[in-house]
Amino acid sequence: MKLSIVTDSMGALSFEAMLDKVAGMGIQAVEMTTGGWSPAPHLRMNELLESAEKRAEFQEALAKRSIELCALNVSGNPLDPGRLGAEHRDATEKTMKLAQLLGVRKVIMMSGLPAACAEDKVPNWISYTVSWPPVLKDYLNYQWNDVAIPYWKDLVAKATDCGVERIALENFSSMLVYNPETLFRLRDAVGPVVGLNLDPSHLFWMGADPIAAARALGPAIHHVHGKDSRLERGLVDVNGVLETKEVTDTVSRAWNYVAVGCGHDLQWWREFFSVVRMLGYNEHVSLEMEDLTMSVEAGIQTSVEALKQTLSL
């Protein structure tokens, strides 16, 4: 497998300075954000869509450093019933068009989360946390059958027309797709273009085993994020894993995203990558560095060192 990096963690750097840093770390691929919840610090999507000259400059900057653009990332909530959803749907469709123009075949996304019924104005994840009272099942069926599946059937068709071969959905909480079971519910309805962006960090705190999840997914693994999380001793034991404190409040949270190796040791990561490779995924693993317990520089360095040791580059 090949090491990549989601470049948002270096958002303070200019595009070219970021590429120089990536090359200096010996990383030969990047996953770049185009919009959604990300400010897309290194890519001006409208400019690249409109100008062949700007696209050529963009691609030349990558090529002269021997860096591959392995995927575009437009993580957001395209199923939000309000203005945010409209903005994220627009960014998603533009991302598919840009992928075609840049020759990128893989797009990273989140599945989205609708409101619980047609009259609601905000997304609602409550149906996923409990099964009672019974009316919650009606809300869940509305979210899937009336909103998500029709949207995703249409999006898969548009993506295919743009030459996108795989859409990898991150298994993020507060989304319809947050684990293998929910991924297969959508995939069975809309086809194999949709697969999982297997991110161990989310599965850890939800109590799942990412290695077992990988075995269940098999060819539905479309992408992998190198990202760790840690259950905080003495806090998770008292309050459990459902956590609503700000991610910046690391001292008080029951769990935190941490640099690779700071939640689970390198032997675990070696086994994880070995199993993922055995199951047929032998492409890019993108470091997504969101550790707020240390500096950005330290988090990136720690994670890169851990991933280089465990990926068997």
Results as ranks from 00 to 15, higher is better:
residue 154 D to C: 06
residue 39 P to W: 01
residue 13 L to N: 05
residue 312 S to E: 15
residue 185 R to F: 04
residue 192 P to G: 02
residue 251 V to I: 12
residue 91 A to Q: 05
residue 42 H to C: 07
residue 181 E to K: 13
residue 292 L to Y: 14
residue 52 A to E: 14
residue 156 V to L: 04
residue 157 A to P: 05
residue 45 M to E: 10
residue 113 L to P: 05
residue 85 G to M: 08
residue 131 S to P: 01
residue 147 V to Q: 14
residue 217 L to Q: 03
residue 283 E to W: 00
residue 197 N to E: 01
residue 258 V to Q: 03
residue 104 V to K: 02
residue 10 M to G: 06
residue 175 M to N: 14
residue 193 V to D: 00
residue 124 N to Y: 11
residue 73 N to C: 15
residue 290 E to D: 13
residue 26 G to H: 09
residue 311 L to N: 06
residue 265 D to F: 02
residue 45 M to R: 12
residue 72 L to G: 07
residue 199 D to Y: 04
residue 140 L to S: 15
residue 19 L to Q: 10
residue 32 M to I: 15
residue 193 V to W: 01
residue 298 A to H: 14
residue 241 V to P: 10
residue 115 A to V: 06
residue 77 N to M: 09
residue 281 Y to H: 00
residue 46 N to H: 11
residue 54 K to C: 10
residue 137 K to E: 12
residue 1 M to D: 00
residue 66 S to T: 12
residue 257 Y to S: 05
residue 145 N to L: 11
residue 38 S to A: 08
residue 6 V to F: 15
residue 9 S to L: 08
residue 211 I to L: 06
residue 287 L to T: 05
residue 72 L to P: 03
residue 273 F to T: 01
residue 217 L to A: 03
residue 41 P to D: 10
residue 94 K to Y: 04
residue 31 E to Y: 03
residue 199 D to W: 04
residue 158 K to N: 07
residue 286 S to N: 07
residue 234 G to L: 09
residue 221 I to M: 00
residue 29 A to H: 06
residue 212 A to P: 01
residue 215 R to C: 10
residue 176 L to S: 02
residue 19 L to R: 11
residue 311 L to W: 08
residue 233 R to V: 07
residue 51 S to M: 04
residue 8 D to P: 02
residue 255 W to I: 07
residue 194 V to Q: 01
residue 313 L to H: 12
residue 228 D to K: 11
residue 167 I to A: 01
residue 222 H to N: 04
residue 258 V to K: 06
residue 133 P to L: 12
residue 280 G to Y: 02
residue 139 Y to G: 04
residue 250 T to G: 08
residue 122 V to Q: 14
residue 277 R to S: 03
residue 185 R to E: 11
residue 114 P to T: 07
residue 291 D to T: 09
residue 304 V to Y: 07
residue 257 Y to T: 05
residue 279 L to W: 03
residue 100 Q to V: 00
residue 32 M to W: 02
residue 33 T to Q: 12
residue 49 L to W: 11
